[in-house]
Amino acid sequence: MAETTPIVEMRNIKKNFAAVRALRGVDLVLHQNEVLGLVGDNAAGKSTLMKVLSGACIPDEGEIFVDGKKANISDPLSARHLGIEMVYQDLALINHLDVAANVFLGRETMSSQLGVIGVMNQRHMEEETRRLLDRLKIDISSVRLDVERLSGGQRQAVAIARTTAFNAKVIIMDEPTAALSVAAISQVLDLVRELKAQGCSIIVISHRLEDIYQVSDRIIVLRHGHKVCDCPISGDIHEFRERVVAYIVGARDDFSQAAVD
């Protein structure tokens, strides 16, 4: 990796849930325009770590630097202001609203303000959504379709597109390819590549090592709240997979930084 300031640096993040030590001092670096795969068994702490970064969860200890500056991320809104967006596993879409409404949810464009009542500029939002979908090469026939009528791949695409509509620098995707058909998975992976090509830095949480292998530059493995592997993607898929699984299940434990706690 080139020696530039990382876009995100998390240092010694600790988080306990009552007696459960979810994160026991994890460091994470995300470089500019890098796709980072984050893997680990269930309860390894990957989702908690990303919730810390996206402001959905406050760590007990640790520091976060964004673009080299110390960041105080106290809620999802402050993360968003720093250009960090998270695509949630359960999609967090509003089924009964259309594509444009979902893309702009919580950030509607107003045409006028009647006192405290904001009147929306729907035309502008629909046009912007169309432009966004075209830019990301997402195939959805109309931005007025209710999200519940979309396929799984299209829904995931909308959820991801939504984060980029407001110039997110860092996009965190929690299991973006879970519960998708083969065709839909390749759509989503194409979208990740497209976002990278457009300059985003991305963290992908996934159980599907093939997907991580295909789109990522580097991989971090968490196990029991520790980082047990942090290395570039290399080798062929079989060798890669064997190595990563060994770290995930604890069969291999030779990462020097592992014992922080």
Partner: peptide
């Protein structure tokens, strides 16, 4: 939004 998916609405701010 609140009626369709309250949690998603909250996450959207």
């Amino acid at each position: 939004a609140v009626g369709s998916n309250e949690e998603a609405a909250r996450l959207a701010g």
